Structures are given as C-alpha cells and as structure tokens.
Amino acid sequence: MTSSAAQYQGTSSDEDVSRRLLDSAAMLSYDPATEVDWESPLPADLYGLNPEWSTLYGTPLWDEMSEEQRVTLTRHEVCSIMSTGIWFEMILQQMVLRDQYAKNPGNPEFQFALTEIADECRHSIMFARACEKMGVPAYFPGRGTIELGRVFKTVASAEVAYGGILVAEEVLDVMQRDWMRGENVLPVVRTTSKIHVVEESRHMKFARQEIRERMEGVGATRRYTSSVAVAAGAYFIIKNLVNKGVYAAAGLDTERALDAVRRNEHHKSMLRSSCAHLMDFLAQSGLLTKPAISIYKSIDML
C-alpha cells in the first residue's frame, strides 16, 4: 500500500475531500494586497464587467446610451454585485463558524472550514478595495432583506446553510469566469475575479460534499423544507445583486431602466445558463422540489 493510500484509509469521504482541499489551498492561494495592482490609474474606456453581463445589454435603452454611460453603468453594476458578495460572505462566515463550533480541530473538515473563512475575509476586503478604487459607493440590500439575512444566518444549518453558500458562489463563479477573460474589462476586476474563481472553486467543492453528507437518508419532509429554504435564500441573493441605484448613477431614469431590465430576455438567458450546473446538482441532491422550482423560475435561474 502506498503512503498516500495509507493516509486516507479509514477516513470518511468528507475527510478525504477536506484534506485534498487543504492541500490545494496550501499550493494555490493568493494575497490580494500584493496580487492586485491597486496603484495604476483606471483606463477610462474599460468596463466594470463584460457588457454582455450588464442588466441592460440587449435592450433599446442600451442602444440609446452613450459609451460613457455604459462604462459607468457596468462599473456600478460590478460594485453592486461585489457589495452583495460582501454582505453574503458575512452571512457565510457566521454559518460556517456555527457549524464547526466545538468540533474536533484535528479534523480536516474543521481545518478547511477555517481556511474558507480566512479566504472569505480576504475576499471581502478585496472587493471593498476594488469598489473604492473604482470610486463607487457601497450598495446595500434593503432593510427588510438585511434583517431576513440576519435570521437566515442564525437559523440555517446543515444542507440549508451549505446550499445557500453554494447558490451564491455558483452564480458569481460563472459571471467572473467571463470577467477575468474580458479584454475590455478593467484590470482590477479581471484580477480580483481570477482570485475569487480559483479560491471559490475549493469552497464550492466543500459545500457540495457537505450537502451530500447531510442529505444522506433524510426524509421527504426535511428534503421538502430544505429545498424551499435554499431556494428562498437564492431569491434574495439574486434580487439584490444589482441595486436599482446603479441606473441613476449612470444618468438614467430609474423606472425606465427597471422596466427594461424586467423585459430583458438576454440577461434572463445569461442567468439561466449560469445556473445550469447548479440546478443539476440540486436535482441530484434531492433539493429541487416543485416549490423550489417555482421560486427558481420566478428569478430566472430555471
């Protein structure tokens, strides 16, 4: 038997996954303080995100906008998404800490959970600095959503907690894979997106494994309630990705812009495509019940 095989013999699949993720984190992690060029001026003609990911791209209103307005809008949109990311990363950290409270610190699962929290702290600071660099103020969800988030992070556990984490990370992952490759996207956004994609890939693997473990042998009632709770979390995340204040910041009429967003089939299609892999996993895990499907369809994730 090889030393590697001996190392993993007698451990659970959850421990195996966590140990491999710890090894990966040790080999490939980034320090945004040094990896991101925080000093160079921003090129005036580059977008905050790929235009195709703008909520107004493909609408008549987008065609009417000046290039300066398009650049401004995409910079505010990406900062709104980053701000929402910070908000949810605060929720995520508290849920993971609660889940690992008083567990064996020698367990690889415990150690990777703390590694993930450390990553999320750096990501939140990175996003905050990126928004400051772009000169965009923080965007926050509404007061009602903030309070619901407070409840969610307090009561969500097991597959609901990790399902909420996975939903937020999967949706952003697909977007950022495009942003990091976008030659017409600001370097600060491309680099922060690359860092987030690399490190969040480990977090998503961890969340999927935790969901698989927690869903083993669960009954129909728990599967039903958990599926709805995860979908409800997704609803508030998606609804708060792009704050309505971004349109006024670009010199647009807010109500007209919101109406264009509601009618924008291109953006809806982009969002559905970004969620395809996530929906497959939720279905395989037993977390895609009829009520959950209705919620996902209402926010164009299905």
Rank of each mutant, 00 (worst) to 15 (best):
V174F: 10
A234W: 07
A207D: 09
R122F: 04
Y139K: 11
K153G: 06
G233V: 07
A229G: 06
I146F: 07
V171F: 00
E132M: 06
W179A: 13
N184Q: 12
M134K: 01
V167I: 13
V197K: 05
P137M: 08
M126E: 02
P141S: 08
S193L: 03
M126A: 02
F206L: 05
N184R: 13
I195V: 13
E169A: 06
E200N: 06
V174T: 11
R177M: 12
N184V: 12
R143E: 15
E200Q: 11
R143I: 15
C131D: 07
R202K: 07
C131F: 02
G142V: 03
S193Q: 04
I146T: 12
Q209P: 03
K239Q: 09
W179L: 08
E132H: 07
A229N: 09
A128T: 10
T225D: 00
L166W: 06
A232M: 07
K194R: 14
K194Q: 12
A138K: 12
A234C: 11
A161C: 07
I238N: 01
V230T: 11
V171Y: 01
V218E: 04
V160E: 12
P137N: 09
V155M: 02
I237A: 00
T154R: 13
Y139V: 04
H196Y: 04
Q176E: 15
G144R: 09
V189K: 00
A229Y: 05
W179H: 15
F236D: 08
V218L: 03
E216S: 11
A220I: 13
E183V: 11
R129W: 11
V171A: 03
H123Q: 06
C121Y: 15
K205L: 15
G142D: 14
R190G: 04
G233L: 04
G135K: 09
V136D: 02
R122K: 15
G182A: 02
G217D: 01
Y235F: 13
E213A: 06
H203I: 08
V189H: 02
R223C: 10
L241R: 02
V167L: 11
A130D: 00
A220D: 09
S157T: 15
V188F: 03
A156M: 08
R143A: 15
T221K: 08
G217C: 03
A158Q: 13
C121G: 11
N184A: 13
H196W: 03
H196L: 02
E159M: 03
K133W: 07
A220P: 09
E183T: 14
Y224M: 10
T154M: 06
A130W: 02
V151H: 13
V174M: 08
R223L: 12
A128Q: 11
K205Q: 13
A232R: 09
F152V: 12
A156C: 11
M204L: 10
A168V: 15
T191H: 05
